[in-house]
């Protein structure tokens, strides 16, 4: 963020399953902390990263915090665009219905609740990625 006041397009790219490594949780924390900086943020989930968003995670048996619930707070942090690659889901036997519902409330539209999760194909994701000023990989 070299020039003050310049809004940059940032994409966080998530490609690892949760719990086995620290990447998923670290990424989420960076997103939450970074949300204070008023940038144009979006998140992408591809490859094993799609497992971060599955519904019904229960970590009681592994003694770790179930941070999947925290993704549903992203709307409060004004992170409203979350892209999941369709090809990655399909390759893993998953579909949109296996994922948590993620929404945000649109301040400019009388706080109407809108979906923030978007399933996109490789071509669209490639296009979005190429448009970014900065890409953070996790």
């Amino acid at each position: 963020m070299s020039e003050e006041g310049t809004i940059k397009k940032l994409m966080y790219v998530n490609r690892k399953a949760p719990y086995g490594t620290i990447y998923a949780l670290e990424s989420l924390e960076v997103v939450l902390i970074g949300a204070a900086f008023d940038q144009d943020v979006c998140l992408a989930f591809l490859d094993d990263g799609v497992f971060q968003l599955t519904e019904g995670q229960n970590t009681d048996g592994i003694g770790m915090k179930n941070f999947s619930k925290t993704y549903t707070a992203l709307g409060d942090y004004e992170v409203t665009r979350i892209y999941v690659e369709r090809e990655s889901l399909e390759a893993r036997g998953l579909s949109e219905t296996d994922l948590q519902e993620l929404t945000y409330e649109d301040e400019d539209d009388d706080w109407a609740e809108k979906p923030s999760l978007h399933i996109v194909g490789s071509d669209e994701l490639a296009q979005l990625m190429a448009e970014q000023d900065v890409v953070f990989s996790f």
């Binding site: 939450l32 949300a35 941070f67 619930k69 925290t70 707070a73 409060d76 942090y77 706080w111």
Partner: peptide, 18 residues
């Protein structure tokens, strides 16, 4: 309990307002 995080202050302020 719902989100597994303590909200940042501006998130808290907005949510309390609501």
């Amino acid at each position: 309990e719902e989100y597994q995080i303590a909200p940042a202050v501006r998130v808290l302020t907005k949510a309390i307002g609501k």
